[in-house]
């Protein structure tokens, strides 16, 4: 589930998923919807992302910022992700195997850069049937 939020100056989204892994993958998809009018659907390049953070909210911000870096600085658009979120004793971690396509501004309908995911209004919470999160991004 992805719902775009109407923030006047910036952009935001609410995402939902049956599991945390699904939630983080929905956040990736939402980011691509912010970037592109027609996000690519296939690709054969591969990347691996391993991250850790003190809590789930910070992990979600890190995840999105890592994807921002891949898209904007490395020209890699993450089309699919296999995400694992191993529980560690003192922090949260993410291990993602990404398949993607090279950035093509024209073909995908580039809509502009993202500066960063923010901690403002950020939440990740468990609810009946799964997980839900809200993120505001500075664009």
């Amino acid at each position: 589930m992805i719902r775009m939020l109407d923030h006047t100056a910036d952009v935001g989204f609410e995402v939902g998923g049956g599991s945390l892994e699904e939630l983080f993958d929905e956040a990736r998809r939402a980011l691509l919807m912010i970037y592109f009018e027609r996000p690519p659907e296939s690709g054969s390049d591969r990347r691996r992302v391993e991250l850790s953070a003190p809590d789930l909210e910070a992990l979600l911000v890190r995840w999105l910022n890592e994807l921002v870096h891949l898209v904007q600085d490395e020209g890699f658009v993450p089309v699919r992700a296999q995400i694992a979120l191993p529980e560690l004793p003192e922090e949260r971690a993410l291990d993602a195997k990404l398949t993607g396509a090279p950035l093509d501004l024209e073909s995908y309908g580039w809509q502009g850069e993202v500066k960063s995911a923010t901690f403002h209004g950020l939440c990740v919470r468990r609810e009946a049937g799964g997980w839900r999160a809200q993120v505001i991004l500075d664009v």
Binding site: A53, P54, E57, A58, V61, R62, N65, S116, T118, F119, H120, L122
Partner: peptide
């Protein structure tokens, strides 16, 4: 900014700073 907001989020409690919004770290 990203690097230091994260660093400040963990530093703020050490200085007794209560945040009403985490982005104000």
């Amino acid at each position: 900014c990203q690097d230091y907001v994260e660093r400040f989020l963990s530093a703020a409690p050490r200085y007794g700073i209560e945040l009403v919004d985490r982005q104000l770290a």
